[in-house]
Write a protein that binds this DNA or RNA. Structure first.
Lengths: 344, 344
DNA sequence: CTGAAAGCGCTTACAG
DNA sequence: CTGAAAGCGCTTACAG
């Protein structure tokens, strides 16, 4: 088994500043000065050092640097699912702000699993990210307390933190849903269904609250059978929609709780023989090209990300410690599906 | 200016293993053993150490660990745009493989700018990521040579590396485009337009080549005015489409070079008074719900990411150094727009 | 303008 | 089962 002595070159045999210093015939500190562009080096010395760097293929090891300096120039982003189109623009916005501040992004998906969220967040803390942007899956974040105390700037987005005091950037989920449902009511609907995400998710609960508020304000009853909360998996949403649309007194309109739900409801309605009105929370690509176009309550995902990241760097720059709450407004976009009158 | 003495708690005042050792009344190495779950610690000693860890809010500093161990348990992912829906499933697939290997993902967008790509890649190398998955924006990657030599496992995805020998995972862009255009020809089209991304991008060039091959194989001429390459910005694509569709002998069908192009062409065609056939490279959400449904050449973005990440970890596990090329096949999905006969 | 020494917080290689 | 010493590759604080 001579196999034991595998090459194992990892990064162990990379040249270090010491190697560069030896080759250039200068001290370690001089190499450090050149690498970091600090002043106080003769042009001639600088040239010798640069030559040694090129010849050796030296690249500074930031792990060592970080250990000494205390800041990693990186921030962590924990979201639900990198593949969900809602998070694309949000991630990108966070990235752009980070980039403007010279920081890299480390990110991961919680898959809506609180344990996985915690595991990820703590792994990022162990890497000593300077800050965290978190779209929480769980509702108890006390595990973050030591980290916050130690100075890890943390901003929650899309949903608030649970059982700790922290910055949060939200959309007006309640108001948006209420507006959307009121819009359906204004177009004559009285039996309106609500299909949303799992109720333990803050946005789902808020949007449901908005739905109920609009119904109540209009003096309309809400039948239990009109409301369905649960996973956004297509099969679940499909059967929920079919149930809500059947029976003796089917709904004439549906409010869909998020973009995953909306796209499935669109498919269900397309198979139906009667028109059913639809308003969805979240805008999505090509919503205007469907027949009818899909009326939505749009939230600005990029603005959520941007606001959160800016708040984070503001904090890193010494902003006071009191937790702040930002709420972004939503916007109703009429495209046809929300303006259909009740059938029959 | 007493302001100079700002709190600055960064992570400087976090407890270290030394603090834990002092509090628990044990040696440093014992704390290390407990933190890393190594054997050889009395249950009683372990308990004392655990208590000290909790009381102090200790969390291991991975920067120090990395410096000593040589591996960071993180990989870098450089892509074009985190917000592009094509990259969502790809990123997610890379992340899942990384997670299965206990690694975190550090990622960034090149914004299709070769300089920004290089800057990002080298920043990741300075962080000593164990490996890189790169969707290249540039076509000269010689800057990576010292890194590859130093053992940074690197896999290119979607587009090959330029001027260096490296692993690459591609879709069959040539074959897919050829199939798509042949499909239009089979439905009677003889004047077919091609609207694609910038020609310096490998996928764009390959798909154009596929288009030309299909036309040639059918004995059809290609007029210069039928082909338009450039940015995928909606305005550019819109005017390209309008130009191709006007004139004395307009095309009766369009092949769209990627999903960004396709969605804009769909909008242009919707405003037209005659039917024009369309096949797009890349599948996209709701393509089946448009009228007509959009026929596409689908590639498996998640499989691209998965294959690349698996190859990367295979390499980190000691797979031989010879560069390998993986090509994934594409799939024609008929939905209506590609089966329309020529108008007139 | 330049550099030697100490130290960041861990792990490694040993010794007991 | 336990721990003291050395070292990973940088930066900091000083001294010349």
């Amino acid at each position: 088994m001579a196999e034991t002595a595998r090459p194992e070159h990892r990064y162990g045999n990379r040249p270090t500043m010491k190697d560069v210093a030896a080759r250039a015939g200068v001290g370690l500190k001089t190499v450090s000065r050149v690498v970091n562009g600090e002043p106080g080096v003769t042009p001639d010395t600088e040239r010798r050092v640069q030559e040694a760097i090129e010849a050796l293929g030296f690249r500074r090891n930031d792990s060592a640097r970080v250990l000494r300096k205390g800041r990693t120039a990186s921030i962590g982003l924990v979201l639900e699912d990198l593949a969900d189109p809602f998070y694309g623009p949000l991630s990108r916005a966070v990235e752009e702000v980070a980039r403007a501040h010279g920081a890299l992004l480390i990110n991961g998906s919680s898959a809506e699993d609180p344990d996985r969220e915690q595991e990820l967040v703590l792994a990022l803390c162990a890497r000593r990210v300077d800050g965290l942007v978190v779209i929480p899956a769980g509702d108890d974040h006390r595990y973050l307390e030591p980290e916050l105390k130690a100075g890890v700037a943390t901003v929650f987005v899309d949903r608030p933190a649970g059982r700790i005091d922290a910055d949060v950037v939200l959309s007006d989920n309640f108001g948006g849903a209420r507006d959307g449902v009121a819009h359906l009511i204004a177009h004559g609907h009285r039996r309106i269904g609500f299909i949303g995400d799992q109720p333990r998710i803050h946005t789902a609960a808020e949007r449901l609250r908005g739905y109920r508020a609009a119904m109540t304000e209009a003096g309309l009853p809400v039948h239990d059978s009109w409301v369905s909360l649960g996973s956004t998996a297509p099969e679940r949403v499909r059967s929920a929609a079919e149930a809500i649309l059947s029976g003796p007194e089917p709904v004439t309109a549906i409010f869909a709780g998020n973009n995953r739900v909306t796209v499935t409801v669109v498919r269900v309605l397309a198979d139906l023989d009667r028109p059913v009105a639809l308003v969805g929370f979240d805008d999505f690509e090509l919503a205007d090209m469907l027949r009818p176009g899909v009326t939505v309550i749009a939230q600005d995902a990029a603005a959520l990300g941007r606001t959160a990241a800016e708040r984070l760097f503001h904090r890193l720059d010494g902003a006071p410690d009191t937790a702040q709450r930002f709420e972004l407004s939503t916007r109703l976009i009429r495209r046809g599906s929300g303006e259909l009158p009740p059938a029959g």
